[in-house]
Structures are given as C-alpha cells and as structure tokens.
C-alpha cells in the first residue's frame, strides 16, 4: 500500500487531521472518513456533478480531486450550508420551487448554484442553464431548478420572492 499522507482540512468549520491514502478521492474522504454522506457519487467520468462541494470558495467536483490535494483547504459541503438553522437561500429556493424530486443530484446542484450566485448575483435564465452544464438531473427537467436559483438570486439581492405556486 502506498505511503499515507497526513492532511489537515477544515470542513464546514471543523478542523480535521487524517492520514489518508493518496488515492482516496475527496468525495470518499468526506463520505467515508468524515461520514458526510450528503455529497453523492453519480458517475465515474466527472460528468454528473452530484459530488460538487466548495473548496476555498469555489465549486469543485470532489470525485475529481484527491483528498491530499485539499490539504490546508476550507471545504463546505451541503451539510454545512445552512447557518444557525436557517436554510441558505438556494436551499430555500429548491424547496419552494420544487427544484428536486428524488434529491440525489440536489446537493451538487445546490453547491453549483451557490458558486454561480457568488460569481454572478443576477444571472439570466440562459446564464443559469449554462452554469449548470456540469450537473445532471434526471428527474426535474431543470425548469424548477432554474426557478429555484432565480428565487435565491432575488432573495440574496434583497428583492421580494414568492413561494410555491403552480405554473398555470
């Protein structure tokens, strides 16, 4: 077995120190070593985005990064997004706008959406769809995900938002 490497990572505000095998992917470090199973694995070719987390302020696919690469980094996972029992506006948007069905893609979608809104607080529908190209959802057909992100964007800009309503 290859020599283990000592890493120190801050995950959701908690500092962790572990000896890891170099080949352990960040996603399995989070899921299996730390028990943070909200980050999912949906593919083996880095396409689906179910594993998206935030590393040092940017969204990354945690299946396409080794845990050793995160040494010294700050990681936020879906479990760390809500603050003081309050949902992040993107989480709230997904709930209000029915932006999820089976919920498997949802943690990754939400983390990607947070990244988008950090970079662009007022995205157009086209920009939202473009920004989601690394996240696959098989259930929703994406429309309500787009609405959820628009809801969150408005809320983050301090504009009024409306909750769950049907389309017609």
């Amino acid at each position: 077995m290859a020599e283990k490497v000592r890493i120190s990572v801050n995950v959701n505000g908690v500092q962790h120190e572990h000896e890891v095998e170099p080949r352990q992917l960040l996603v399995y470090y989070l899921r299996e070593t730390l028990g943070l199973t909200g980050t999912h694995v949906g593919c083996d070719t880095s396409q689906c985005g179910a594993c998206t987390v935030n590393v040092d302020g940017k969204a990354v696919k945690s299946c396409t990064m080794f845990a050793v690469q995160a040494d010294g980094s700050r990681v936020t996972t879906i479990e760390g997004l809500a603050k003081d029992g309050n949902y992040h506006p993107v989480q709230e948007g997904f709930w209000e706008k029915h932006g999820l069905q089976c919920g498997f893609c949802t943690p990754g979608m939400i983390m990607a959406a947070v990244d988008l809104l950090n970079k662009n607080p007022n995205p157009s529908e086209g920009e939202i769809r473009h920004a989601l190209e690394g996240n696959l959802c098989r259930c929703t057909g994406y429309q309500n995900i787009v609405l959820a992100i628009q809801y969150a964007a408005a809320k983050l800009r301090g504009e009024p938002v409306t909750g769950a309503v049907a389309d017609d």
Partner: peptide, 23 residues
C-alpha cells in the same frame, strides 16, 4: 393545493439516506 413537499428538508440538507450511505 400547490404545497411544497415534505420530503425535501432532509434532501436539501444532504441528510437523506441513500443506499451507498449505509455502512
């Protein structure tokens, strides 16, 4: 009524239990 789903709070916080989460 278009009420939002009760299954969601768990799922949007990454607290669902999917098969591979079982250990």
């Amino acid at each position: 009524k278009a009420i939002k789903r009760r299954e969601d709070p768990k799922l949007i916080q990454g607290r669902g239990t999917f098969l591979d989460d079982i250990k």
